[in-house]
């Protein structure tokens, strides 16, 4: 018997290698003499590992599975797992490289929006598990004074895509009948956020996206307004800011004033 680390190293490599019937001799030789069907026995472990990881990806990317079909999804998932086995004991965040994998997967090159739909599903999951925080409710928090630094809700995630990903995602969330829909490429700016129990996916104008992006970097209202006005000349910062604040975008009690001497 090789020492325990050698066995566990060989077994780890076997379990995360691409599915196949071959069991390395080092592993087969560990079994007692006369042990029946070593290949079948080891295969149970490998099947367990792959089945659990494919299920984890299916749970996180249901719209992708609906778009490409169960069988193709399984094929893509197995390819991804063999390339990117998990590294953490909790599977909650497994698959964070799957959007990028799909975007570069030659077999789905004719579906260029797939990677971005997967990215949206991943952000949805991140927002779902993000830390809880009470959105700001008081009047001062909805007034965009130049020198306050609004803090985004910890669940807030931003993304943009040249495709109408939120529409594609909405159409493929449930089990409704398939229909053909023409969605010409049109850039979307999205805020994914969970101010209360439910995760919301909001389409926002470019100016709002620019302001939110600035807030995420720690900008003050003055800084965010500059960004928003650059993005969208004539942007009504006050109106949009108030609407964001009422929608639970910012966290209570975290706006800070600059103390000027």
């Amino acid at each position: 018997m090789p020492p325990l680390p050698e066995f566990q190293s060989a077994m780890s490599r076997y379990l995360t290698s691409a599915p196949g019937p071959e069991v390395p001799a080092l592993l087969r030789n560990l079994l007692p003499p006369g042990s029946s069907r070593p290949d079948k026995r080891f295969a149970v472990y490998k099947n367990n590992v792959y089945a659990r990881l494919v299920d984890a990806l299916r749970d996180t990317f249901p719209a992708i599975e609906r778009l490409v079909g169960e069988e193709f999804f399984r094929y893509a998932a197995v390819e991804y797992i063999a390339q990117t086995p998990p590294v953490t004991a909790s599977l909650l965040a497994y698959g964070n490289g799957f959007p990028e994998f799909l975007a570069g997967f030659p077999a789905v090159a004719q579906l260029p929006y797939l990677g971005d739909v997967a990215r949206l599903e991943l952000l949805y999951l991140e927002a779902y598990h993000a830390a809880d925080a009470e959105p700001s409710g008081d009047a001062s928090a909805v007034t965009p004074d130049d020198d306050i630094f609004p803090k985004l809700h910890p669940s807030a995630r931003l993304m943009t895509s040249p495709f109408q990903v939120s529409r594609i995602w909405e159409l493929n969330r449930g089990a409704a009948a398939f229909e053909e829909v023409a969605l010409p490429p049109l850039r979307e700016y999205l805020l994914v956020i969970r101010p209360a129990r439910e995760v919301e996916v909001r389409r926002v104008p470019f100016g709002v996206y620019a302001a939110l992006f600035a807030f995420a970097q720690g900008a003050s209202c003055a800084g965010a307004r500059d960004e928003a006005e650059w993005a969208e000349p004539g942007f009504d910062f006050r109106a949009h800011y108030e609407s964001l604040a009422r929608g639970g975008t910012f966290v209570a009690g975290t706006t800070e004033r600059i103390h000027r001497s």
Partner: peptide, 25 residues
């Protein structure tokens, strides 16, 4: 059981040989 080695998390409950070495570990 074991489920982690060399930075990989294998997400299955894998068997341990029942040796004195394993007992200590």
């Amino acid at each position: 059981a074991w489920s982690r080695f060399g930075g990989l998390a294998l997400h299955d409950l894998l068997p341990v040989p029942y040796t004195r070495q394993s007992l200590g570990i």
